[in-house]
Design a protein around this nucleic acid. Structure first.
Lengths: 190, 190, 190, 190
DNA sequence: TATGAATGAGCATTCATTCAT
DNA sequence: AATGAATGAATGCTCATTCAT
């Protein structure tokens, strides 16, 4: 079924272009024509692969989540300051992804489809993180939630004031916030 | 003589109505007529007090920041788990404010006026918090940043999954995140 | 009845301010608030003296006609190249008046009230001019019409290209156009 | 394949419809929907071909100039009373065009784009007329300017008082005004 | 008389969606 | 499958007019 593969690939490519366009113009300012242009197609073509704009935007959220969390989704993912720092807005690409990620937070409460995607990703990541911690912390799930909240909290701040937060400063704040948590874990790791 | 009105008060009342309308419909879906209706006036009246919609939205951001942070802005504000918990989305009003607060995060990177408001508030709050901590922590500014990031991180999660995060659970997560920080402070307080 | 005098004077002053505002911004761009501001009053005050905006604009047309033609309306008005040149857009004030005068031409065909004012002024001027010519030209009325048309035609050109038409050039063209007419008149004058 | 359209032709057709709508309602009263309706399309379609309303109006001015002057633009155009009379508002179509032409005079002084179009057309026509006169008059350019001013002056009068100016009367006034000019030319023509 | 706040209809403009080709 | 022209509803903004004071 080569056609189907093509179809999926096409959707991904449009969703990816949408992420870029949103990072560039903002979720509320992005037009379907911008997305089409970024994808190198026309609006009519987009209509072939998505029922409507909302569907494109939902796919873009999926795409940006994948980009952001594919690294830490791996089951054998190590949980260190360095590995977690990589998720933060420490590179231009990461900053672009965080801008998009943040933009959806404002819309999700009013759009069930987006809420669901968020909840699913939070669940996956919290569970994955908890598994990594499991056995090394009395309450793995809460520790995982703490790590996630720390990453989100730092990510917000950096996205809103990118020029004030070079990578090292982000890492330092992360250490202040979850250093104790990881330390309490590490000894048990050895 | 014409009807006498308090210009500033009127602006505030419209901005406040805007916050409510945004909490209700979302920042991207809110219409000027919705805001006007919520304020009990017509769109023309809104035009008397604001140059355009963007100006209304900027005032609404200001308003929601005031609502959220007026409590902790006080110079003699105590820094305890309880007092910080009050800022979290633990009541319907707080949840509404957080929905609005989050919505602006997605727009701020592309709107200088909104960025500035954010940065100003972050600066004020971080400084205020740092002052409260001063002398009780080796790096008050970083500790303050950690507290702010923890609050933001938890606030995001709760706003996206309100039904999963009753007040107690929020408080528990907050304790996990900044308990050590406050503990290291408290002894010195005594 | 001093009040009435005041009333009339007030109307004149507003109409005059309207002329200035129209010369400045154009007939289609002028707002009632602009006119009020130019007159040093508020829109509410304008409403006291005129039924609506159209009435103000009609009064402004009357005013500009008076300004333009009061000089040549006099019964003993001499008909020379010099005296006619004075009506042309040869000074900043005259150019402003011509801009307003032209602006009304475009609106008159669709607004009966304005049409009537135009026709009345054309009639008066043509008659006055014809009287001055009377006995010195076989067809005074047609000669008068020719002079009027020449003035209008030159006025249009100059108003549209003011920087290309210094006063001397205007006078030269006027001479080319109605010199023969006046020459045929003058001998008989003596 | 998408529907193929001649972009330029479409613009012309919309501009032409705009001229008709303006002749009908006046330049200041014409709405974009009126123009669209006259063109048999929707406002959205107009947006495809023009950036905004001002662009449509500029194109309409161009169109009406073409309609009015295409006849006398020809290089071998004869310069006679009859040929010039044809430009005057002697037919319903010509009267409509003159109404539009006049309407733009009032707006041009405040809109650079319109001023430029006017100046360009005046330049073209004066030059063309001067060329036709060249060699048969000591000052062809001034004679051309005189003819143009006469036509404009008569056109204004007739447009403002159409019912008073049947074609023959227009022709008679034209003869009074430029008869001498043409006479001084004709002998040399022979 | 005069003020100017408030109204609300009117309009240009935007843009997701549709569909003939 | 893809194009992009066309639709038309939606909405922010303008501004003449009204009216309580």
């Amino acid at each position: 079924m080569p056609k189907l593969v093509d179809h999926e690939e096409r959707r991904r490519s449009i969703a990816s272009a949408a992420v870029d366009a949103i990072a560039d113009q903002g979720l509320d300012a992005v037009k379907l024509t911008d997305i089409a242009k970024a994808a190198g197609v026309t609006t009519g073509a987009v209509a072939h692969y998505f029922s409507d704009k909302d569907a494109v935007l939902a796919a873009a959220l999926d795409e940006v989540c994948t980009r952001l969390f594919s690294g830490i989704d791996a089951p054998d993912h190590e949980l260190t300051l360095d590995s977690i720092t990589e998720v933060l807005p420490v590179t231009p690409e990461r900053r672009a992804e965080w801008r998009v990620w943040l933009a959806y937070w404002g819309r999700a409460p009013n759009v069930p489809a987006l809420r669901q995607i968020h909840q699913q990703y939070y669940d996956e990541i919290e569970e994955g993180t908890a598994k990594t911690i499991a056995g090394r912390h009395p309450e793995p799930r809460r520790a995982a939630a703490a790590i996630i909240a720390a990453v989100d909290g730092i990510g917000v701040r950096v996205t809103l004031e990118p020029e004030l937060w070079p990578p090292e400063r982000q890492r330092a704040l992360l250490e202040t916030m979850i250093g104790p948590l990881l330390t309490s874990i590490q000894p048990q790791t050895v």
